[in-house]
Design a protein around this nucleic acid. Structure first.
Lengths: 221, 221
DNA sequence: TATCCCCATTTGGGATACCAAATTGGTATC
DNA sequence: GATACCAATTTGGTATCCCAAATGGGGATA
């Protein structure tokens, strides 16, 4: 694997894992020394991460993208459009056996599953559902949207009851898709995404002071 | 403006203007000498054009992305999802005066307007409509989709009657939006996009031999 | 003490040098 | 004439160097 891809992957992991806080300044030279690569692959990695929305230009320099509540709300609307479209496509297929793998993914999460795994599966549920549609653009749209939401979701205050309800919704959506009930699944999915957005934005607004104290830039909606 | 941006813009124009044919190989050194820049800005430009889907990696090298009929069909589905969502948002606004600028754009095209201008306005109608939604993600999705379709639309055999009908549809969609009839506009827009896709794919399939003879790579659906 | 100014340092943008891998073109062989 | 093989060239990947602009810190001044 080329160094550019290594730098890109490691830097993405550091950003998504909040090892580098939202809003922090980045210098090409720091990344260079941190990962032992020269500036050429570093710059390539930054350019690609910029298109993912994980880093942004700050005048002449680079910044880890702040968490932006207005952006989170816009992403929810975007997700409703693309995820619902993907679900309708999937529901209309004759062979919907691909849903089994997604159900199995949900099954793999138990009470002793680490939080990191729940986070991953909670993301992959939506991404894999979009992939099932067979439409590369809808799939990429959902994958990119979930990537952008990743850090915010990581910071969300866990509410056992709400999480359990959201998890149950995943099952219900899958069941509707299984039966080919596109309209029903679309409606459930849109509501599910809306609820997810409300909890996320609400949680971040409540934590905002604490997050800023930790050095995390959070832009109000 | 930085050289990287200049190279990116000029190269994009050459690709979109079919000065470099779909499927053609690109070498960093050729671009370097062609635009009088060094490899650093050239590589940056290629990385960004790759995320736009205009150039692709071909093993170790670079290729101007071929025209892909399957991709065009997938983009149409994607567009239906995001453009319809954007239109619904716009229709629900109290102040829909932004539609006037789009109507004016349509008005600016007359019988003596050059084809290039028709092409641009035909694209901007959809892009600006999405921008009116106020949702940055829907807007970018439509803009990127239209960029990817640009070359194919340029190669479409012009059918006066069909074009006139499509143009009339633009007006009808605007009128529905003006009246705040979201459902009506959504339905019209989805059909409009579908029709556009059918004419486009049909035209390219019919021309496929000729295009290949011109050195344009066209991948069948 | 607050403010302005100047210079040393740092930074990203660009140019160039070097390398390993891949491509290419020709040639010898069958 | 087809094919296998080898050397020369080309190519993308990387490292490094230079530069102008930006940054920032310290001292002079009011």
């Amino acid at each position: 694997m080329s160094q550019m891809q290594q730098v890109e992957r490691q830097l993405r992991e550091m950003i998504l894992g909040l090892d580098i806080g939202p809003g922090e300044k980045l210098t090409e030279r720091w990344i260079e020394s941190r990962f032992g690569a020269s500036r050429t692959p570093v710059r390539a990695a930054l350019l690609r991460l910029e298109t993912e929305g994980l880093v942004s230009r700050d005048g002449r320099g680079w910044t880890v993208s702040p968490i932006n509540l207005a952006e989170i709300e816009q992403i929810a609307v975007y997700r409703q459009a693309v995820e619902v479209a993907a679900a309708r496509l999937t529901a209309a297929f004759e062979d919907r056996s691909g849903l089994d793998a997604i159900e199995a993914m949900l099954d793999s999460c138990g009470t002793d599953t680490p939080r990191e795994e729940w986070h991953r599966v909670g993301t992959d549920f939506h991404v894999e559902l979009a992939r099932l549609s067979g439409n590369e653009f809808l799939y990429r749209a959902v994958r990119d949207a979930m990537t952008r939401l990743s850090r915010a979701r990581w910071l969300e205050i866990s509410d056992e009851a709400a999480s359990a309800r959201a998890w149950a919704e995943h099952r219900i959506i899958l069941n509707a898709l299984r039966k080919g009930q596109g309209d029903e699944a679309a409606d459930l999915l849109a509501k599910h995404i809306g609820g997810s957005r409300d909890r996320l934005v609400g949680s971040l607004q409540a934590e905002r002071r604490g997050l800023r104290a930790r050095g995390f830039a959070v832009i109000a909606a």
